[in-house]
Amino acid sequence: MTDPDSFVPQDTKAQAESEDSCDVGRRRLLAMAGGVAVLALAPGVTVWARTMRAKGLVDAHPVRYGLLIDANHCQSGCDACVRACNQYNGLSGQTGPDNAQWIRKVTIQDPKTGFTRTFPVMCQHCAKPACVAVCPTGASFRRADGIVLVDKHRCIGCRYCLMACPYQARSFVAHKVDDQKPWAPRGKGTAEGCTLCVERIDRGKLPACVAACARRGHKAMLFGNLHDPQSAIAKRLAQYASTTIRADLGMEPGVHYRGI
């Protein structure tokens, strides 16, 4: 009937239907079951993904802002970053228990050798921030681009975040403020901390501390997108050894240090 050597192109669909029609029914059933399963699971998967993202456990956003602070270049007598921060954000610059401090210079010394290092410490903009985890109202939150902020519209001033932060990066506004800067709203009864100058970043400018350090010519601070392999900060991090403060806590800070 058919020559086994000759190739006759056949309608594969017709062949499949004629040869085993029971398989078609099974396929349809499987396809329907698959569709039903997708419909049933999709909302759950979406909610799960959202929850994971909200908790910061999935960090798939293309942008994560961070800093690289090179303690080798940070000068011991210089506090340009601190003064720039205070001036730009309208802070008093005083360091009493009632005064807000968003960034401070820290000096460490090896007691055996006397080797001294100085570098600025501010909010470390962690991937898994403790302040966000403990906040009872959702006022402490992590923006999609990795900046950890206080939404003062929701803050009730409970100060849990001040207790939770191992870097002591949060401050509490204890007194009435009436000389705020328009870009840095702050008021009595709310927690606050370094915003990474979010208003400047959104306008495409560097944070005030980084700009001040660069103006001084020290270039000890580098700001950039950690998730962009082409960015200067990502290249520098890939090139040299760096560390984060208290990396053992597993909060994955966005502020990296070199030379400490």
């Binding site: 003062k152 705020q180 800067k181 328009p182 870009w183 709203p185 702050r186 008021g187």
Partner: peptide, 19 residues
């Protein structure tokens, strides 16, 4: 205005937001 500035910064006047 417990938190927000009740006067604009001179640099924050109209035109600042040109972008």
């Amino acid at each position: 205005f417990a938190c927000h500035a009740a006067v604009p910064e001179p640099a924050f006047a109209p035109g600042y937001f040109s972008r």
